[in-house]
Design a binder for these strands. Structure first.
Length: 878
RNA sequence: AGGCCCAUAGCUCAGUUGGUUAGAGCGCUACGUUGACAUCGUAGAGGUCAGCGGUUCAAGUCCGCUUGGGCCUACCA
């Protein structure tokens, strides 16, 4: 084994080994238990970011773990066509070439889109493999491939036939820059510093003037009414009358509507049904006409009048305000902070306008998704998201699903020359339904999330009753970011129940956002973006994975510090060197990894590490079951580094070095390494495979790969509390003696005498038996059983008195101060302990074990106090 | 405007149903190159668990309020 630990030397080799072995191809049908994870398909807009690396790591961890546990594990990979986002990328590319989508035409533009997709899909696949993702690439899907397109058409037709999808004129969020309608979720509210304009209108047939307040004066050109609250006494007399719209002179009837707030502004609202969602609804209630004054490119229309037609909406605002001022209609202008919807992708302010679009009524499906969580059929992890989930689903509104784009699933509706339409699965069905061949398919495409919503089953062949569908559906768990809880997760649950009668997964593990070391959001403009490919290059895939997994605490964002990653790369080095030591020492011996171990004849250290291993295995398994990746990784780290390396290997050295042979130490060490590596494999697949393949006897566990070796579990026969107690005492004792030696300034190798005295019993016998081992750990020969003489530095651990005697020992002032401080602390603890035990209520109500623990602790404290006082030369009576 | 979350060591964070002396990584201090590993070892220092009040024999943990951050949802023009 190379002395240097270098992940690059083996990662690519094992990637190939796994691919060639076909180990990650799932079976259908299969007698094994099912374990399915669907990847949240990354957008084919570019490369994977660190958030993908986090989610992929966790998904792979779960998949590898379950595969080792004997499940028919499927992690199905794929990518999303990401309509708007990807089309934008390609349009930008075209712009840089001096051409455009419209110049190319739909067909040639889509060719460009597909070649873009091919390139980026390959990138994503390579990056996932780089991270060690154990995906089943034979089942890779793309949201725009033929099978998924079929599922989309089927779902659309069924929802249409059930009356849940419909075509209607409605006010939508229009993105003038993207030139398409978008859904409510794609609108981001931004707080902006604007102005509130107070405008005076004349009342028809009187000399009364009324004042309305608005943040968007340019929309007044499209006003068709003035509204106030029906209980507002100030304006009752206006009912039945009309105001005169300044600049255009149109009659605006007064209407009373409970939606108006009396307390805002003057209590009078100008009503622009074409350009405001509230006004749109109000207009419908009162049968008001809607006049379009802003077009789809955010320019004023002819209806805005000759002074304003053709102007950009914001220029028009200035000009309208100026005109109002000139004619004495502008009463006042106030600063006003308010929220304005902006296009998430385009960045510009949304222009609400009335448009003919396709909508999906999701109310009933949302109710089902709500109920699934309420009943426990579906679990959100962490559960803090339940309240948000419920609120959103119970207040849901129709989903605008049509987009005026080219890159996406074309809406399966065909129009006759007279404008009537049929909805069908394909053109042939449409012709049959329409009774004519003279049809034109709808130009629009569906919201990307419509196809994503079907992902858990469309990828398995739905609507066919395919073997994959029967074998792998429903899936086990979804791992994704909470930022797409509504965009995606909720919609998958809705369609899952609607089309399959089941929740598409049993649990959703929601990860936090990966941030930089100081908790800042990563962004290109801040320049703090960490690229997973660079990180793998620097630290190795295993360190990247381990870091991300150990930082995944529930409900929290993840501050990612490269220094921390360096620390887990060092953990890899530790594993490497522990194995190298074992292999070097055991070379030429007949030590082998043992599939099962006979305990008879093993000495205490061996029994101890096996007992610890059994518990570690059980705990790791348990933590993974509850998605506590952080705790599972912490346990693995401390078992391997703390218990196996720092303690057991040190305890094994006298035996391995031939100084004090013990039975089958080699077999135990290799077996423990084997199992520890198997426990670590789901999170550190490359290193564990590399090391495990070198362990003599590993073939008996699995002939080809650790990835298919069984995941170790608890071994009840290995657990031995008595041995653990004794060994814990021994290890504590060693630590305390070392501590005393440091305090006394004993240099390494300098002589000192250690006196040990324990009350008679099993522990005393054990310590007496283990004197050579203790001596080896402490690098001293001089251990004397019996009480220490006067002047020794003393301590007491687990009922054993220990005393260290060094030549010409002096208590320095620093040491004296430290001991005095400790004595003060102990006095305080004793006082609190006595107070607690003297409390009748405590003794009466606390559990017996707690009381007994307090008593024992108090006794130990008192002994320690006596020793400290003696060491400091104080009176020992207290 | 509603709802949710967070505040624990110098930094970034764990801490399950309340229970003995609140943990980790990094950083810091002292010593160390002893035949796996200096990407290391040994031993340490460091915390009024944001503040105030309450429940309890017992509170980092449960309840209320305050302060300071963050997030989500939302048609007050």
């Amino acid at each position: 084994m190379d002395k240097a630990f270098e992940p690059k030397s083996y990662e690519e080799r094992w990637r190939r080994h796994w691919r060639d072995g076909g180990y990650f191809v799932a079976e259908a049908p299969s007698a094994k238990p099912r374990f399915t994870i669907m990847i949240p398909p990354p957008n084919v807009t570019g490369k994977l970011h660190i958030g993908h690396a986090l989610q992929s790591t966790l998904q792979d961890l779960l998949t590898r773990w379950q595969r080792m546990r004997g499940a028919n594990a499927l992690w199905l990979p794929g990518t999303d066509h990401a309509g708007i986002a990807t089309q934008l990328m390609v349009e930008r590319q075209l712009a840089s070439e001096g051409t455009s989508r419209l110049e190319l035409g739909r067909e040639r533009f889509l060719e460009r889109m597909w070649s873009w997709k091919a390139e980026y899909q390959t990138n994503i696949r390579q990056q996932l493999e780089l991270l060690g993702a154990s995906c089943d690439w034979t089942r890779e899907r793309f949201t725009l491939d033929e099978g998924l397109n079929r599922a989309v058409r089927e779902a659309f037709v069924r929802l249409y036939e059930d009356g849940l999808i419909y075509r209607a004129d409605y006010i939508v969020n229009w993105s003038p820059q993207l030139n398409t309608a978008i859904s409510d979720l794609e609108v981001e509210m931004k707080t902006v510093q604007g102005k509130l304009y107070h405008i005076a209108y004349a009342v028809e047939g009187s000399d009364e003037r009324i004042v309305v307040a608005t943040t968007r004066p340019e929309t007044m050109l499209g006003d068709t009414a003035i509204a106030f609250h029906p209980d507002d006494d100030r304006y009752q007399h206006l009912l039945g009358k009309a105001a005169i719209l300044p600049l255009l002179g149109r009659r605006l009837p007064f209407v009373a509507d409970t939606g108006v707030e009396k307390d805002f502004g003057t209590g009078l609202v100008k009503v622009t049904p074409f350009h405001d969602p509230f006004d749109f609804e109000l207009g419908r209630r009162h049968n008001l006409p809607a006049i379009q004054v802003i077009d789809r490119t955010a320019k004023m229309t002819e209806a805005a009048g000759p002074d304003f037609a053709g102007l950009d909406r914001f220029e028009a605002r200035k000009k309208v305000v100026a005109a109002l001022g000139d004619r004495g209609h502008l009463v006042k202008v106030e600063d006003h902070t308010h929220n304005v919807g902006h296009s998430q992708r385009g960045g510009e302010a949304i222009e609400p306008l009335v448009s003919t679009q396709w909508f999906c009524d999701v109310t009933s499906m949302a109710q089902q998704a709500h109920d699934a969580v309420a009943s426990g059929e579906l679990e959100l992890v962490p559960a803090t998201w339940v309240a948000t989930w419920n609120h959103w689903l119970l207040n849901i509104k129709p989903w605008c699903i049509s987009r005026q784009l080219w890159w996406g699933h074309r809406i399966p509706a065909w129009y006759r020359p007279d404008g009537t339409f049929v909805v069908a699965r394909d053109e042939a069905e449409a012709r049959a339904k329409a009774g004519t061949d003279d049809l034109r398919q709808d130009d629009d495409v569906l919201d990307t999330w419509f196809s994503s919503a079907l992902w858990p089953f469309s990828t398995l062949g739905w609507p066919e009753e395919s073997p994959d569908m029967a074998t792998f559906y429903p899936t086990e768990v979804l791992v994704t970011g909470h930022d797409i809880l509504f965009f995606w997760v909720a919609r998958m649950v809705m369609t899952g129940y609607r089309f399959t009668g089941k929740s598409p997964f049993k649990a959703v593990h929601l990860t936090g956002l990966v941030r930089d070391a100081s908790g800042q959001k990563m962004s290109k403009t801040k320049g703090n973006v960490l690229d997973p490919v660079d990180l793998v290059d620097t630290y190795g895939a295993d360190a990247v994975r381990f870091t991300l997994a150990i930082l995944d605490a529930p409900g929290r964002d993840i501050p990612l510090d490269p220094e921390r990653m360096a620390g887990y790369r060092a953990f890899g080095n530790k594993i490497w060197n522990a194995a190298r030591f074992a292999l070097t020492r055991l070379e030429g011996t007949d030590a082998r990894v043992q599939p099962s171990l006979e305990l008879a004849g093993l000495a205490a250290p061996e029994r101890w590490i096996l007992s610890r291993l059994s518990q570690a295995a059980a705990e790791v398994d348990d933590k993974l079951t509850t998605f506590r990746f952080d705790e599972a990784c912490h346990r693995l780290y401390h078992f391997f580094w703390g218990e196996l390396c720092d303690q057991y290997i040190e305890l094994a050295k006298p035996a391995l070095l031939g100084q004090a042979p013990r039975p089958r130490v080699g077999d135990v060490l290799l077996t423990v390494l084997d199992r520890a590596l198997r426990l670590l494999h789901p999170v550190m697949p490359f290193l564990t495979e590399e090391v495990w393949q070198r362990l003599p006897g590993h073939e008996a566990i699995h002939p080809e790969t650790i990835a298919l070796a069984p995941f170790p579990g608890r071994e009840p026969a290995w657990e031995n509390p008595a041995v653990e107690n004794h060994m814990t005492a021994l290890l504590d004792l060693v630590t305390r003696v070392r501590g005393l030696a440091v305090e006394l300034g004993v240099k390494t190798g300098a002589p000192y005498r250690l006196h040990l005295a324990a009350e008679e019993g099993a522990l005393a016998d054990f310590v007496a038996d283990q004197l050579p081992l203790i001596a080896f750990q402490l690098r001293t020969e001089a251990i004397i059983l019996g009480p220490a003489p006067d002047g020794a530095a003393r301590d007491r651990v687990a009922g054993i008195d220990l005393g260290v005697v060094v030549p010409k020992r002096e208590l320095g002032p620093e040491e004296r101060a430290r001991l005095a401080a400790e004595l003060g602390e102990i006095d305080e603890q004793i006082r609190r302990g006595e107070e607690r035990l003297g409390n009748e209520a405590f003794v009466a109500k606390a559990p017996a074990a707690v009381i007994e623990g307090n008593r024992k602790k108090l006794a130990e404290l008192k002994e320690r106090r006596a020793q400290l006082r003696s060491g400091l030369g104080l009176e020992t009576s207290a």
